[in-house]
Write a protein that binds this DNA or RNA. Structure first.
Length: 411
DNA sequence: TGTCCACTGGAAGGGAGGGCTT
DNA sequence: AAGCCCTCCCTTCCAGTGGACA
């Protein structure tokens, strides 16, 4: 009897998913619906690589989940294939600048992707920049072809480490004799070129493309396409795809979100041992995705950020919904003392508060109290209970979670 | 109309930590 | 082992500022 149950479970899970990989947003499908124009456009720029000329550098703009990365990778792959076919050397490197965000990191990563010999690789730290650059140039030169460099989330790179790397890279072509390099910069932020040096701006932005967000109908097409491959027949209720599309369209027209919704719905249905994915599963998925995101963010926060967040929560528990930077800092100092941690400077804490704001955990808006000075008003933008639960999984934070901040005296 | 508060946000720099080179 | 080099996390210093109030 027990055996039968085991098999039943296995069978019912098999009924839903055929190939889960396909609905991960990192998967690059054969067919990208509603991006024909963009693909053609990018291809027309890069075709010169096959003629042995240097393709223009390109900036691609668009919100998250508009297919920028997918299109860039797709065209890159096709280009490699065609290059092989025609005997032209083309290679491509993909770097996500949110992960690799230093000058050294970028150059060494590009270098290492071109270097085949393991013991010639550029170490991840230790070399002077100039040496890294020389090595990179030498290796690209050896290729005697075109190297396409894709820098995803390039705006993050510029805001963290400035545009020096981009200057170096854009200048590289003039140093190369037998080979060429061209750059695709992908950015979420339309205005990020404002931060660039004029020289970098003109040499990098020879071509610009803007990817519009998908609307609900287009999202449905994307989901249908993938669902065919990912799910078994009849695994989906008819209303599931339209609902996923509609919810994602409301957000930002974000295809990644739509795909995540569909996948997580499937996973939830699977766990429920349901025969079909239904609207209910999608609603649950919507909820789960947001909660998971927030608790993951909070769990992985550095200790001082956690202490700041705790300060905000503790104040809220005594009825202070809104804090100024100074007030938050006072409580923070008190609980640091209690936990035997040396507090950071207020300047540093102000930066951490900005980070928390950007992560969407708190709301911090700059306001002026006139003579009362200028500061930020901080409030929690996630659930107190859930947040506190996650924070308390950390022993240090747990030790201060009962603390009552002294009431702030407003003048 | 000017003052002046409580910060903000930029800049510079230190020092610890990774690791290479000689 | 001593001396470089790059990055990260912080501190210190400071000019700049929106707007209530005198």
């Amino acid at each position: 009897m027990g055996e039968k149950d085991i098999f039943n479970t296995l069978l019912s899970t098999k009924l839903l998913f055929k190939d889960k990989e396909v609905i991960r947003s990192s998967y690059i499908p054969e067919n990208l619906p509603h991006r024909k124009k963009e693909i053609a456009n990018l291809a027309s720029i890069f075709v010169s690589a096959l003629r042995g000329e240097t393709p223009s550098n390109v900036f691609i703009y668009g919100k998250t989940g508009t297919g920028k990365t997918a299109v860039a990778k797709y065209v890159g792959n096709e280009l490699l294939k065609k290059g092989k076919e025609l005997g032209k050397y083309v290679s491509s490197v993909y770097i996500n600048c949110e992960i690799v965000d230093t000058e050294y990191g970028i150059l060494s990563n590009i270098g290492n992707s071109v270097i085949k010999n393991w013991d010639e690789r550029i170490p991840f730290t230790g070399w002077p920049m100039e040496k890294v650059y020389d090595k990179l140039k030498e290796e690209i030169e050896k290729q005697r072809g075109v190297t396409i460099i894709v820098l995803d989330e390039i705006d993050k790179l510029v805001s963290k480490s400035g545009d020096d790397v981009l200057y170096v890279l854009s200048r590289m072509n003039t140093d190369l004799k037998n080979a060429k390099a061209s750059i695709i910069g992908i950015s979420n932020d339309l205005r990020f070129t404002e931060l660039l040096d004029v020289r970098v701006k003109s040499s990098m932005g020879e071509e610009e493309m803007i990817f519009p967000p998908y609307n609900a109908t287009q999202l449905q097409d994307i989901l249908k396409e993938r669902a065919k491959l990912a799910f078994n027949e009849n695994a989906l209720d008819d209303s599931v795809i339209p609902l996923c599309a509609a919810l994602a369209a409301q957000e930002h027209g974000d295809a990644r979100r739509a795909l995540d919704l569909l996948r997580v719905s499937g996973e939830i249905a699977e766990r429920d041992e349901s025969q079909k994915i239904t609207e209910t599963h999608v609603r649950k998925a919507q909820n789960k995705i947001e909660i998971d995101r927030v608790s993951e963010v909070i769990r992985t926060l550095p200790i001082h950020s956690k202490m700041i967040l705790m300060s905000i929560i503790l104040n809220r528990e005594i009825g202070q919904e809104i804090l100024t930077t100074g007030e938050a800092y006072d409580t923070y100092k008190e609980i640091c003392k209690k936990a035997n941690i040396s507090p950071l400077s207020q300047r540093r804490v102000a930066d951490l508060i900005s980070e928390l704001d950007m992560l969407g955990v708190i709301n911090a808006r700059l306001i002026s109290y006139g003579r009362g000075g200028r500061t930020r008003e901080i409030s929690l933008s996630v659930s107190v209970k859930d947040t506190k639960n996650v924070l308390e999984t950390d022993e240090v934070l747990k030790s201060v979670s009962k603390y009552k901040p002294s009431k702030q005296v407003k003048l």
